[in-house]
Nucleic acid binder design. Sequence first.
RNA 1: UGGCCCGUGGUGUAAUUGGCAACACGCCUGACUCUGGAUCAGGAGAGUCCAGGUUCGAUCCCUGGCGGGCCAACCA
Length: 570
Amino acid sequence: MAESDAEGTVESKDFLRTKIENDIRTGKYGGRVATRFPPEPNGYLHIGHAKSICLNFGVAEEYAGTCNLRYDDTNPDTATQEFVDSMQADIRWLGYDWEDRLYFASDYFEQFYEWAEKLVREDKAYVDSSSEEEIRELRGTVTEPGRPSPYRERTPEENLDLLRRMKAGEFPNGAHVLRAKIDMAHPNMVMRDPLLLRIRHSTHYRRGDEWCLYPMYDYAHCLEDAIEDITHSFCTLEFRNNREIYDWVLDAVGIERPRTEQTEFARLELDYTVLSKRRLIRLVNEGHVAGWDDPRMPTIAGIRRRGVTPEAVRSLCEKVGVADVKSRTDYALFEYAIRDDLNWRSPRRLAVLDPLKVVITDYPEDAEEWIDAPSFPRDVDKEGSRRMPFSRELWIERADFMEEPPRKFHRLAPGREVRLRHAYVIRCDEVVKDPETGEVIELRCSHDPATMGANPADGRRIKGTIHWVSARHALPAEVRLYDRLFAVADPDEGLEEGEDFTKNLNPESLVVVNPARVEPSLADDPPGSRYQFERSGYFVSDALDSAPGALVFNRTVTLRDSWAKIAARS
RNA sequence: UGGCCCGUGGUGUAAUUGGCAACACGCCUGACUCUGGAUCAGGAGAGUCCAGGUUCGAUCCCUGGCGGGCCAACCA
């Protein structure tokens, strides 16, 4: 429902929140709201999971409800403790807290089994001894009905005996399965006697060898929700067809209404990346990235190392919204969310990535002066400054000089003036080139000594300001310039027969600059510190590889660059 | 020769019990500026997939098309 805030703007709710408010108003669950985030601990959490986390935990916060963290660890072959641990760290990093509500589906195995016996006794489930291939064969296709298994009409007594022996471990993998007895001709494939329990002689990371009967998703998930008394069970769109079995199982075991209800929403899809577990694993295993926490990866671990803040991730999820229409998020929205958060929190520093030497010919050889430079621009409400040394020889960015400047180029060129950030206005008097290659190797400039902290006395306007560092004082640093992982927004785009998404990987997703020259105030930088390198972008000192004396910075995101747009046009 | 879901500017979302479409990002102008950042002001851009129907009036309801997605793992 629309509500007006203090400014009189109307805030509208997404369809899930609308449903929740409706349920609260009608008293369906006595006003209670209980959600859950149910990851399978078989991989790293990524930004797509973040959307689900923000939704489930966010909704619980907004409606004074609860959100459980529940590991859907029903597959003994894939679930591991390592993933359980990393997921908790990631969720905490995002700023959410499950308090004492940490649950494991593997703790419910006994209950799942009890209900299975009940279904068998009531002739709602049967033991099928067909092979995997036979079962697939008899299931039919989306356009053809399935056929009943020859074991479908076993008596409840026979089924119960078999089920107990399955549980006791008398049979090898695949010998029998427990199936719901529904309808082999059902138009919804999910309802054609779905498998409930299967035999798997594997060691479970929490239950050891205690069990050999493991539940399938369709049997387990709804019951997990019911056991925890969840009210609103959110899942992604592709589970729409499974809603029917979700309700069937709940009815079959006798869970009374009002009870948990499944609602589907669109998963996050982000331009220039992939978010499927299968593909992420390939990127790691095939060495396209350095690991799960490579700053180019869309994993929580990756974007954290990249320097993205949890606030930015939450902001993105908020901006993306939630709907039941498949959608793809513009990468620019992600970048906006990052910059919008980093702008006010990042102290400014100067760093030169592609150095060009500048000699201030009218500045004394051995002189130096230390400038007190504010860490934040005046429109950021934060205090702080650092000292920056100025001297006769400087580094500036090679791209800030052009011998034959195009129109609207406000930087340095022969005979032209620019402001050195926080320092003097200088004029380029002479261009020194390598006699062999013709490459510009040095600029000889003069400075206007009256322009430190002041505009030129004669009122002339200086259009450009560029960044610089004192050559003598600058610190070397490794700077890793990260860019989008894929060269095209949709990694599946334009593929020929036999090619796959890895063909669209961006070969320049990582460009290492070593050494870049950074101002000396960064010397004692603790790993994980975020900065804005002025006119360049937001950077974070690498949590693993950076150390005082051996600085390593990751570029989180570039600054918006309106000059690049102007330059690209001409 | 199936079932289910969906179709609003470039993108993501809105539009209260049906009252001629709003916000954000992006894009374009301009202002300001010791960051070509930020900020501020303004602008372009959809007539709501199509066709019928109901209605004084349809993005919203009905019918039929068209287009897209999901479903045939002992994965989730």
